[in-house]
Nucleic acid binder design. Structure first.
Lengths: 152, 152
DNA sequence: TATTGTTATACTCTATAACTATA
DNA sequence: TATAGTTATAGAGTATAACAATA
């Protein structure tokens, strides 16, 4: 009698699906999907650039998945890959000026999409949800090493 | 500066991914993935059987996706499709005795998988999370019509 | 006409393995 | 030997459209 509506795992999957769908719809005007947006946001926030490996760890993706995402963003002129000054292996992903601009608009659109799903929850409740989810995610969210420095 | 670790949408996706992965791993011994398990659970809970269309609505899937899931469960002998006594269009999905048995073991395994990700949260906190997620999912979770009767 | 199940198709996401160049 | 990036591939999940049988 373990009703699915009381199953935290099921509810997480369902809520996540709805929010991703709403966010993708909100971002479609800008030609972005939510995964690309998250890469753009991290690149934009890391002044000097962020290594793809660190992007992968931060986003919980395999490095091989990041390649395609960065390729697409680069093709759209929103990010570029720069060599690291200290190590020739990594390629630091950094937002272009256009990328920074698009990111700003995308952040606002995405926020709108999320709120369309969160509508019922007060700000305080959303903060509670955020805190609980952060603990579920817990240690699984990697520390962000951008350009070789700890930015945590 | 909208750090992803404070983004509810991102956290939902991340948490959901981790829980699904843990649950799939916990269910692999039984040859089930989490989506199949959820179909089996709904079929098992609906004594007289549940129409595939209602499964789809309950799970937030397209009816066409349900076909393959039921096919797999039926091939494994865990569910079977029965005609509805009152309408020849729908096919009511019902758990076989073996399906009921497997479902019981799967429920316990899945619970263990989820708890491995939820470990940090107390029972009360999990209940809070559950309640908040139910409101995010909100009206999007369809009412379950099994065998033509409202079972909500 | 509308509904149920089904097939087909395409795209996205996830998961691995192997290769290269650099360290 | 280890790390960063890349390529390739296969499987799972998501999204539509169209069709047959039935209501």
């Amino acid at each position: 009698m373990s009703d699915l509506r009381n199953d935290v795992g099921f509810l997480l999957t369902r809520a996540s699906g709805l929010v991703v769908r709403a966010t993708n719809a909100a971002l479609s005007d800008l030609g972005l999907r939510v995964r690309q947006y998250s890469v753009l946001a991290l690149a934009d926030d890391s002044g000097e650039g962020i290594a793809q490996r660190d992007l992968a760890e931060e986003l919980g993706l395999d490095p091989s998945q990041v390649v395609a995402l960065v390729d697409e963003l680069a093709a759209a002129g929103l990010v570029e890959r720069r060599p690291s000054p200290t190590d020739r292996r990594p390629r630091l992903v950094v937002a272009t000026p256009q990328g920074t601009q698009v990111r700003r608009r995308a952040a606002s659109s995405a926020e709108g999409g999320v709120q369309r799903q969160m509508g019922d929850l007060s700000g305080e409740e959303q903060a509670t949800l955020r805190g609980l989810l952060q603990r579920v995610v817990g240690g699984s969210v990697g520390r962000c090493r951008a350009g070789g420095e700890l930015t945590e």
